[in-house]
Lab assay of single mutants.
Amino acid sequence: ELREAFAKVDTDGNGYISFNELNDLFKAACLPLPGYRVREITENLMATGDLDQDGRISFDEFIKIFHGLKSTDVAKTFRKAINK
């Protein structure tokens, strides 16, 4: 299930999730959020999830993000976006 969610976000299939891919995910989900809020959520996920600070999120980092977000608003938003 997590591998499928990761693949859905990794639209270019390079094995990593970029800032733009995350941002595009939230935009495509048509969530009722202003653009600046989408950017804040994306920046927050990148800042906390990109553990090796290479500017992208690997599958291992994605798993840690996903499990670390349990019930936060960001987690709910992220799950809604993935499930669209």
Rank of each mutant, 00 (worst) to 15 (best):
G13D: 07
G49V: 05
E43P: 01
E43W: 03
I57W: 02
E43A: 08
P32L: 02
T42S: 07
I41Y: 06
Y16Q: 03
G68K: 15
N44A: 13
A28M: 11
V38L: 13
C30E: 15
R3F: 01
H67W: 03
G15I: 00
G13H: 08
S71D: 13
V38N: 03
Q53S: 10
T42F: 05
A47T: 10
R39C: 04
S18D: 15
I41L: 09
L25Q: 00
G15L: 00
E43Y: 04
G49M: 08
I82T: 11
F59C: 09
A47I: 06
I17P: 00
T11L: 07
K84Q: 15
I41W: 03
V38D: 02
E21H: 10
L33W: 13
L25V: 15
L69E: 12
A5C: 03
D73Y: 09
L69P: 06
H67N: 15
Q53F: 08
A81D: 15
A5R: 00
E43G: 05
A81G: 14
T11Y: 03
D12T: 07
G15R: 01
K76F: 09
S71C: 10
L51W: 08
N44P: 03
D24S: 06
D10V: 01
R56G: 04
L33C: 08
C30R: 14
R37N: 10
D24W: 01
A75L: 07
I41H: 02
R3Q: 08
T48V: 08
T48A: 13
K70I: 09
Y16H: 06
F62G: 00
G49T: 08
V74D: 14
D60R: 06
P34K: 04
L45M: 10
L69S: 07
G13R: 07
E61I: 09
Y36A: 14
N23K: 14
E43H: 10
F78I: 12
L25A: 11
N44H: 13
I57D: 00
I82F: 08
E21W: 00
L31S: 08
E1W: 10
E43Q: 12
A29G: 07
F78M: 13
I41S: 02
T48R: 13
S18Q: 15
T72E: 13
L45S: 03
S18A: 09
E61F: 01
I57C: 02
L69W: 05
G15C: 01
K64H: 06
G55Y: 13
N44R: 10
S71H: 09
D24A: 10
C30W: 04
I63H: 04
D10I: 02
D12W: 02
A5I: 15
D60P: 11
T48H: 09
